[in-house]
Computed example of a mutant assay.
Amino acid sequence: MGLSGCASAPPSAQAPAAGGEARVDALMADYRGKVPGASVLVLRDGQPLLRKGYGLAVLETGEAATPRTNYRLASVTKQFTAAAVLLLAQDGRLSLDDPIKRWLPSLPKSADAITIRQILSHMSGLIDYEDVMASSFDADQRQMHDLDVLRALEGQDRGYFAPGQRYRYSNSGYALLALTVQRASGRPFASFLRERIFQPLGMHDTVAYERGVSQVAHRAFGYSYENGRWLRTDQSSTSAVLGDGGIYSSIEDLAKWDAALYDDRLLNDASREAAFTAHTATDLADVGYGYGWRITGETLWHSGETMGFRNVIVRWPRRHLTVVMLTNRNDPEPYRKALEIAEVYLPSSPVRER
């Protein structure tokens, strides 16, 4: 799909622009000091041109953000959920054309025709669980989990449209994919990610976080700016749903993830091509969606936002350039900032905003 409006593809990279780090420091001025911060990574040919933290990971203690700081990835998680499904397809444990009800038979009749492939590309028409979840869920008392998403959808014998007809971004779908991974593999979703993705790639601090089960090393807490000050807003009633947004990671670990997306140490050629191909247009001009990735021109990217976190990864695979920006604040969205940072290292071709 020929897409070009969101991030134009830069020409072949030359040597980094003189004073690149200082220029990025200037771009990141709002994240410096005693405020919720960010960690920024720029990779070329697998080598870091910049790996740096700005501001604070924990306001209450003054702990600084560093390259090892772990942020809740929010929807950047979806590329890992998609990879888990593709790994099981490679193993022959499931097919992307399986009806989702093969694995989750308690879903209502309206889900009969929905396939795993349609869920991966947000073409399922599933009802948003956030709109139908029980009002009794409270982040301070009980959080919703992936299984609770299934239970909420069991009572929704309807969809937004017939499966496969169009695109509608669906957190519900990716929660169901996490459950499908669990049932097809016989392993809890968090364990499958750890054993099949994180440990083999050396992503030792990355975790699909489960309160009371796992820990987040070097953890950043999320904050929102309200009434003139930063307030901790780290968790909500949906923060424990893993498949759509529950992974914590750092720019150091995401450098290892990025490297694995160039070869077959994890996904084979066919799986990577499937993930990185735009299977549908989206509701953003010139943006297509693959499996856990948005596609615009030469770029593969995904953003993520949740309570007190906003993140983005942007890859130019033909140029072997990647920019990752992880932040522990509710605003602003970092996508345009990541494109500005890319311009520092690819100055001859301005990167256009969408």
Score class of each variant (00 low, 15 high):
Ala162Met: 10
Pro163Met: 10
Pro163Arg: 11
Gly164Phe: 07
Gln165Val: 14
Arg166Tyr: 05
Arg168Pro: 06
Ser170Leu: 08
Asn171His: 12
Ser172Tyr: 12
Gly173Gln: 05
Gly173Ile: 09
Gly173Val: 06
Tyr174Glu: 01
Ala175Met: 13
Leu176Lys: 11
Ala178Thr: 02
Ala178Glu: 02
Leu179Val: 03
Leu179Pro: 07
Leu179Gln: 08
Thr180Lys: 09
Thr180Met: 00
Val181Gln: 00
Gln182Ala: 13
Ser185Cys: 03
Ser185His: 03
Ser185Asn: 04
Pro188Gln: 05
Pro188Lys: 01
Phe189Ile: 06
Ala190Asn: 08
Ala190Arg: 04
Phe192Val: 12
Leu193Glu: 01
Leu193Tyr: 02
Glu195Leu: 12
Arg196Ala: 15
Phe198Lys: 00
Gln199Phe: 14
Leu201Asn: 02
Leu201Val: 08
Gly202Phe: 11
Met203Tyr: 00
Met203Ala: 01
Met203Trp: 00
His204Gly: 13
Asp205Trp: 05
Thr206Asn: 08
Arg211Ala: 15
Arg211Met: 10
Arg211His: 13
Arg211Thr: 11
Gly212Asp: 14
Gly212Ser: 10
Ser214His: 11
Val216Ile: 15
Val216Tyr: 05
Val216Gln: 03
Ala217Phe: 14
Arg219Trp: 13
Arg219Lys: 15
Arg219Ala: 15
Phe221Pro: 00
Gly222Ala: 09
Gly222Val: 10
Gly222His: 03
Gly222Phe: 05
Gly222Asp: 06
Tyr223Val: 12
Tyr223Lys: 12
Tyr225Lys: 13
Asn227Thr: 13
Arg229Cys: 12
Arg229Ile: 09
Trp230Asp: 13
Leu231Asp: 12
Leu231Glu: 13
Arg232Leu: 07
Thr233Ser: 12
Thr233Met: 07
Asp234Ser: 06
Asp234Val: 02
Asp234Ile: 06
Gln235Ala: 12
Ser236Met: 10
Ser236Tyr: 00
Ser237Gly: 00
Thr238Lys: 03
Leu242His: 05
Gly243Lys: 04
Gly243Phe: 09
Gly245Tyr: 04
Gly245His: 02
Gly245Leu: 12
Tyr248Cys: 10
Ile251Ala: 00
Ile251Phe: 02
Glu252Arg: 09
Asp253Pro: 07
Asp253Trp: 02
Ala255Ser: 15
Ala255Val: 10
Lys256Gly: 04
Trp257Val: 09
Trp257Gln: 08
Ala259Gly: 11
Ala259Asn: 08
Ala259Gln: 15
Ala260Gly: 11
Tyr262Ile: 07
Asp264Tyr: 02
Arg265Tyr: 07
Asp269Tyr: 07
Asp269Trp: 12
Ser271Gly: 13
Ser271Ile: 06
Arg272Asn: 06
Arg272Thr: 06
Ala275Val: 06
Ala275Pro: 05
Phe276His: 15
Thr277Gly: 04
His279Ala: 07
His279Leu: 03
Leu284Lys: 03
Ala285Ile: 11
Ala285Ser: 10
